[in-house]
Simulated assay, not measured.
Amino acid sequence: MARHGWGGRPPANEEEARQRIIDATAGLIDRHGVAKTTLSDVAAELGVTRQTVYRHLGSISEIVSVVAARGAEDFVDRMVSHLEGSRSPADAVVEGILFCLRTVPNDPRLNLLLQLGDTATFSRAATSPVMLGYGSAMLRRFPVDWADAGVSDDDLDGLAEMIMRLLISLLDSSTEVPRPEDEVRALLERWLVPALTRS
């Protein structure tokens, strides 16, 4: 590892170098937004060259994707904690969707997913096999008994896709006024809850 740059404290190994680049990028995004964060900015923040940053993590879009993914992991932890005490899988899904609608637009790390291109790009990314796999893994962490609602482990993949598609629509920033939460809750309780309630 080179001894110059890095604010006089060079990283001990590759993992530490990557983590410091990610942390610096996250800090810049929090302060200036993703549109005003460049590879040069990250390099300057760390006191290294652009080539050094590129060697460890690649392009700024790759680094921003890592920042967004780590923000999503923290978000899932917060959501699971929020859902503790849910009465049923249906209740957890409704509260989880409402939690997303409250949290995602105001969270700079999660909002990266919405800022990385236009709505169509976000829609494709959010329903990619990787994101749907992530969504079903998130549902498996919900503190509920899915079998009690007649939802099998295999069914969680389809449920994750439906939730992601619904969230894309509800988070669409092109609408002038976001729908009030009580209206969204009523919509979910009328059409989604019956599908998650054993008759």
Rank of each mutant, 00 (worst) to 15 (best):
M1N: 10
M1T: 06
A2T: 13
H4W: 14
H4C: 10
G5L: 04
G5S: 07
G7L: 09
G8H: 06
R9M: 06
A12R: 10
A12E: 10
E14S: 13
E14P: 03
E15S: 15
E16C: 03
R18K: 14
R18L: 05
I21V: 15
T25N: 06
T25W: 01
A26W: 01
A26L: 09
G27R: 06
L28M: 09
I29F: 01
R31S: 15
H32K: 12
H32Q: 11
A35E: 14
A35I: 11
T38H: 06
T38R: 11
L39S: 13
A43V: 09
A44I: 12
L46Y: 00
G47C: 09
G47K: 03
T49L: 06
R50F: 07
Q51Y: 13
T52W: 04
L57F: 10
G58D: 10
S59D: 15
I60D: 02
E62T: 14
V64Q: 01
V64R: 00
S65Y: 05
S65W: 01
V66F: 06
V66P: 02
A68F: 06
A68H: 04
R70E: 15
G71A: 11
E73G: 09
D74K: 14
V76Q: 13
V76H: 11
V76N: 10
R78Y: 12
M79A: 11
V80A: 09
V80C: 12
V80F: 07
S81C: 08
L83T: 02
L83N: 02
G85N: 05
G85K: 03
S86T: 08
S86P: 02
S88C: 08
V93K: 00
V93A: 03
V94S: 02
G96M: 03
L98H: 03
C100W: 04
L101A: 08
R102C: 07
R102S: 10
P105S: 11
P105N: 10
D107Q: 07
P108M: 05
P108E: 08
N111K: 08
N111Q: 07
L113Y: 12
Q115H: 11
L116F: 04
L116T: 05
G117V: 04
G117W: 03
D118G: 15
D118E: 12
A120W: 08
T121S: 13
T121M: 12
A125W: 04
A126C: 07
P129T: 11
P129N: 12
V130F: 15
M131E: 11
S136D: 14
S136G: 09
A137L: 14
F142Q: 01
P143G: 08
P143L: 10
V144A: 00
D145R: 02
D145L: 01
A147P: 00
A149F: 01
G150R: 01
D153S: 13
D153K: 07
D155G: 00
D155M: 01
L156A: 06
D157R: 14
D157E: 14
G158A: 15
G158H: 08
L159G: 00
I163S: 02
M164F: 14
M164T: 09
R165N: 05
L166S: 12
L170F: 13
L171R: 11
D172I: 07
T175E: 08
E176G: 15
E181W: 06
R185E: 10
A186L: 13
L187M: 15
L187C: 11
L187W: 09
L188S: 03
E189Y: 05
R190C: 13
L192V: 07
P194H: 05
P194R: 05
L196I: 00
T197C: 06
T197Y: 02
R198I: 01
R198V: 01
S199V: 03
